[in-house]
Design a binder for these strands. Structure first.
Length: 155
DNA sequence: GCCAACGTTGGC
DNA sequence: GCCAACGTTGGC
């Protein structure tokens, strides 16, 4: 696989939204909302673009790891859940005239036949250098190096 | 459930 | 602007 655009890793807790849930969304894909971290927000708002690759990572899972691949089908849009008082992502400090949070829309592409677990990532000479393998790295959106992506899709 | 490693908040 | 207290993430 040859890739020219950006490559990202998105974390999700599968009990809340799994790659199977993403697959069920079909060609419309899913708006990735609820990101409430500024560094992750900046990636979503400023860098993630249509046609970028997105590795889906299941966190808080058994095992945690990379489970598949999705594609960005629409770039940054205001995350309206921040204005919804019923939403668990409601943020009273985000106002319509000055939105604070953004999301992108992604579409399921494939679920890997076997999860690439965090333990395998940490044990791999190259993959162990990925940000997701680093202790204390809690970002839910992070860039992925091209060489790491190639290893993963050929795993 | 524990707790390390963060990020955020707010008093000063 | 400092930093203690607090909240959250997420592996284990």
């Amino acid at each position: 696989m040859t890739v020219s655009g950006g490559i990202w890793l998105f974390k999700t807790e599968p009990t809340i939204f799994s790659i199977d849930d993403l697959q069920k969304k079909g060609s419309a894909g899913e708006f990735w909302d609820g990101v409430r971290n500024y560094q992750a927000r900046n990636f979503l708002r400023d860098q993630v673009q249509s046609n970028d690759q997105v590795l889906i990572y299941h966190s808080n899972s058994d095992p945690s790891g990379i489970v598949g691949l999705a594609h960005v089908i629409n770039g940054a849009q205001v995350d309206l859940s921040a204005f919804d008082q019923q939403s668990k992502y409601f943020d009273p400090q985000s106002v319509i005239t000055h939105p604070r949070w953004y999301g992108v829309t992604i579409r399921w592409f494939e679920t890997f036949p076997k999860i690439i677990s965090l333990a395998e990532i940490k044990a791999h000479p190259q993959l162990s250098l990925m940000a997701v393998a680093k202790k204390g790295q809690r970002l839910s959106i992070m860039p992925v190096a091209r060489e790491h992506f190639q290893i993963i899709v050929n795993y």
